[in-house]
């Protein structure tokens, strides 16, 4: 199987091509963020930090980053908590209507974001909750909770199912068993879900665009700049966004996969 026949070389070359396609736009953004030309194309101009200086001098951008940070941290906290509870309920209990419960929990990512945006805007406007930071938070929690649930549920699938009942038999209250058996076991998954949901929220632009009003997040700001003319600042803002969200996803995966391979039974 490992013999490098012509066919295998061709397949490997194809894999490389797919990765080039996937990563080219990301690399391009970093390259042009430090390129001097106003209209990005080749040949490249000279190296400059001008675009970064411009955006760092812009109070609107600082404000957008502040809103984004606030939103993604609140969303990550809430979504991870809700995702954990859902995953635990699915793991521990069987009840009628469980299929409905799970589809309710996992369906949001299949609804187009524009439609979620319109629906949230219509509803929130009706109850006078639109255009505020918490309207973005509420909408993003709906979108992010399923990811958190999936991550925690994968971890719970690895736990020895007898551990928790053992703790109960030894006299631990359900709450104490949760605190000393389940939560320590799930800690890497919880941390990972937190980073992942923070990244999803930090990057989400469609729903945020509909409900945010004047409280623009960074992606909404990018969306609005894009609707105008070519502006090289986009590459600088975009590169910062890439750096932040990619680090979050990388951290999420590293935590999840490193800990998952070494089973831990802390707590008892």
């Amino acid at each position: 199987m490992t013999r490098l026949s012509g066919q295998n070389l061709l397949l490997r070359g194809y894999v490389v091509l797919v990765f080039v396609f996937v990563f080219t736009p990301i690399v391009t953004s970093f390259v042009f963020s430090v390129n001097s030309d106003r209209f990005p194309t080749i040949p490249l101009g000279h190296f400059t930090t001008h675009w970064y200086e411009t955006i760092f001098a812009d109070p609107d951008i600082w404000e957008a980053f502040r809103v984004s940070a606030l939103v993604s941290v609140s969303v990550a906290t809430l979504a991870t908590f809700i995702g954990f509870c859902t995953a635990y309920t699915d793991y521990r209990y069987n009840f009628t209507g469980k299929a409905l419960y799970l589809s309710l929990a996992l369906l949001p990512p299949t609804i187009p974001l524009v439609i979620m945006g319109l629906a949230m805007l219509a509803l929130l406007a009706r109850i006078n909750m639109s255009g505020q930071i918490h309207s973005i938070v509420v909408s993003h929690v709906v979108l992010c909770a399923p990811f958190a649930m999936a991550v925690v549920r994968m971890r719970l699938a690895q736990i020895n199912p007898d551990l928790e009942p053992a703790a109960w038999n030894l006299g631990a209250s359900p709450w104490r068993a949760m605190r000393e058996v389940i939560i320590p076991f799930c800690r890497p998954a919880i941390a990972s879900a937190f980073c992942l949901t923070a990244a999803v929220s930090f990057d989400e632009f469609a729903v945020a665009w509909f409900v945010s009003g004047l409280n623009k997040t960074v992606p909404v700001m990018i969306l609005e700049i894009l609707q105008g003319n070519t502006d090289p600042q986009i590459n600088a803002i975009g590169s910062i966004v890439f750096a932040i969200s990619m680090s979050l996803v990388v951290i999420a995966q590293l935590i999840f996969f490193r800990k998952a391979s070494a089973p831990t039974t802390t707590g008892i």
Partner: peptide, 12 residues
Amino acid sequence: PFFTSYLVRIYS
């Protein structure tokens, strides 16, 4: 990349 800024990639 699935979780990172689609918008900026489109601009690229």
